[in-house]
Design a protein around this nucleic acid. Structure first.
Lengths: 213, 213
DNA sequence: CCACAAAACATCAACGAATGCAAACTTTCA
DNA sequence: TGAAAGTTTGCATTCGTTGATGTTTTGTGG
């Protein structure tokens, strides 16, 4: 069902040559950037090189992405839509903790598996956790998305959940998962182990930090 | 060159003219930057203007700060030291949740009150939550500090606390407080109300998200 | 007090990211 | 087909950041 979502998003309103061409250059830019970044590193790759690789002018790059960092973060919006949809379509009397855990599981499942190849995903994650500029940009995106999710949650449980409670829940879960994943990866764990650790962290957070020690 | 940046820290026992002068230009740069940012905005202020205001060359700016953003984040290191000290000096059988809440309270208390004036602090916070570049930088700093705190925690409770548990605890608390503060400020709350809300969020997190709804 | 080493600073030059602008080009559609 | 709308491009410019190199300032031993 997530494939459908993507397809709808990208191809439904696309009749003409114009749109298709735009799509192709967009993809070409992303692929060129990813290839060059993996090959020479992020800072070592210039926008001019990326543009040349995708056969467009340097200037054109900026009509597709607002910044160099955004080439790697182009799909983060669709993730937000996913979880907003989960919130909107929750069961009528699904308890908050259940919904939260469902969201976490969904997000984790679709972290390792996005539409580009597994190899591409791996280097994307490596770059995002390694390169300071990308790390900063990703954290900012995640943060503002959390705000929107918190507001959606409060809306969904309106009357039964204050803004502070909703924000606390979302912030705590996301914060725990984020930190645990990076800590896990940094000590040498594989991606699967990191995801497993994040799930564990989410459970701890739902159960309460008071359960520790 | 990292060493160079480090030795600019505030020190009590400084003999030479050299060190005192360095301290003075450091402070001059910070004050000039803050004044200009408040006056004309962050992006609208150039490094050349800041340097001119502090009577140094543009090049010299970079021997005091690694980037334009860092002028406003120069004291965040001392905050990390504070909480690391709290962890190191905990009571021999202080339970984890108690220590955590003590850390949160301490951090919140020292957020509104730093060494420069209250007015300066207010504009600093406004800039950091408003200007994208500053927001991103601040989030990145906070994040890497969380990792260090988690490791310190695990060390302090060694044997009784896994890395995943420590990271989950720190990440959850910091994430909840961060999101709640911004959500609170964005809906128009005062600083005091935001701090109060953050404290509430920390309590919810310790108690467990399962207690909601 | 003076010379010498080291640190801090300035000047100059260069690179890359990002933006505005207007000309050239492509697609659409009446 | 031809005008309108949208896209790409080259050019100029601004700004942050870094490196190389020379100059001033400061601390120290003779």
């Amino acid at each position: 069902m997530d494939e459908k979502l993507k397809c709808v998003q990208y191809s439904s309103a696309m009749a003409g040559i114009r749109e298709r061409k735009k799509q192709r250059t967009h993809q070409a830019l992303v692929e060129a950037a990813l290839r060059l970044f993996a090959e020479k590193g992020y800072e070592e790759t210039t926008l001019a090189e990326i543009a040349a690789e995708a056969d467009v002018s340097t200037r054109t790059f900026f009509s597709y992405f607002a910044s160099k960092e955004d080439v790697l973060l182009h799909d983060i919006d669709s993730r937000l839509e996913r979880t907003l949809a989960l919130v909107a379509g929750r069961g009528p009397d699904e308890a908050l903790p259940d919904l939260l855990m469902r969201i976490v599981r969904d997000a984790l499942a679709h972290m390792a598996a996005d539409d580009s190849g597994a190899e591409a995903t791996r280097t994307r994650i490596r770059l995002m956790t390694t390169v300071p500029a990308l790390q900063a940009r990703a954290l900012r995106l995640l943060f503002s998305n959390q705000l929107r999710i918190a507001r959606a949650l409060q809306e969904s449980y309106h009357g039964r959940l204050s803004l502070v409670e909703a924000a606390a829940a979302v912030g705590a879960l996301a914060g725990a998962a984020k930190l645990v994943i990076v800590a896990s990866v940094e000590r040498g764990d594989s991606m699967e182990q990191a995801v497993e650790a994040a799930l564990q962290a989410a459970e701890i957070t739902v159960r309460g930090l008071g359960s520790l020690t």
